[in-house]
Amino acid sequence: MGIKLTIDGKEVEAKNGATILQTARDYGIYIPTLCDNPALEPYGGCRLCLVEVEGMPKPTTSCTTPITEGMKVKTVTPQVERLRKTVIELLLSDHPNDCMTCERAGDCKLQEFAYFYGLRSNRFYGKRRQYTKQDGNPFLERNMDKCILCGQCVRVCNEVQGVGAIDIAYRGFDAKVCPSFENDLNCEFCGQCVSVCPTGALTGRIWSKKGRTIGIKEVETTCSYCGCGCQLNLHVRGNEIARVSSKPDNHNEGWLCVKGRFGYEFITSPDRLTTPLIKRDGKFTEATWDEAISYVAERFKKIIADNGPDAMAGLSSARCTNEENFLFQKFMRAVVGTNNVDHCARL
């Protein structure tokens, strides 16, 4: 049985237990937020999603407030707009505002809100947090002076990844997300925290200066590591992969592991084989495709002619595509003429 309420005068209905924000989202009503993530527990930290509810003395955070029957919600009022603007100004007053060189420019929620609220100048100024410590891990870049304390990284690490490598330390203005005792990050390096960070506070180390949004083409594909089959978005710039992300609406819910997220560098490894090689006198020599193909075909044909097709065998790979495997066994069976074909499913 649904609960009926109105949001901005529109009659809506949702399940008991839903929050105002969830309900609004379902009906396409936009409420700004920096700390909410549908995959995580409601937090109520950033205060951008404040709405007015009839009968409540003060604005309330839509991300944490459960809906009730007959509730009347207003998502845009002069008061909540003023409060949202103040919140963003406050955040910007403690932010490096170095969007020019920031890895996340164009893909940063804080920047986006500053844009929407037209915040060129700021009523507030004062001390800014500045951190110099570089984390020693090879995967994640942590620029904590860009952190807006939305807590998404803390929650995703704890709630989703089950690791709990980070939490908020210190009090007041100096509150800071860090590993215990400010040690270097020592975790599973899944980068889930990076994927939920709304600003440039957390980025991939190898993403640095590979491209932001301009000139980036996203290609959706399937991860080539384990059998989970996670959906990846390869961010391609030119002929290079700039970084990897994943969409929250896929079967892996946008989550990836360290290999899927950061393990693509092998593609451009200098060790890649770039030309056919034929071993002559125990040494590999480079060959053209025509040479290699006809050489292999001849040798195969000779073995078949001399010893029958069952003197040939093929080993295929669980790393290759279905189509390649299909063609491979078809090659062995239809062209070579043997059922001596297998793969490495057992390992």
Binding site: G44, G45, R47, L90, D94, G126, I148, L149, Y170, F173
Partner: peptide, 14 residues
């Protein structure tokens, strides 16, 4: 301030 919400964390500082 625990630092969780923006108005208290940064606002009271300002």
């Amino acid at each position: 301030s625990c630092g969780k919400c923006t108005p208290c964390r940064i606002g009271t500082k300002r």
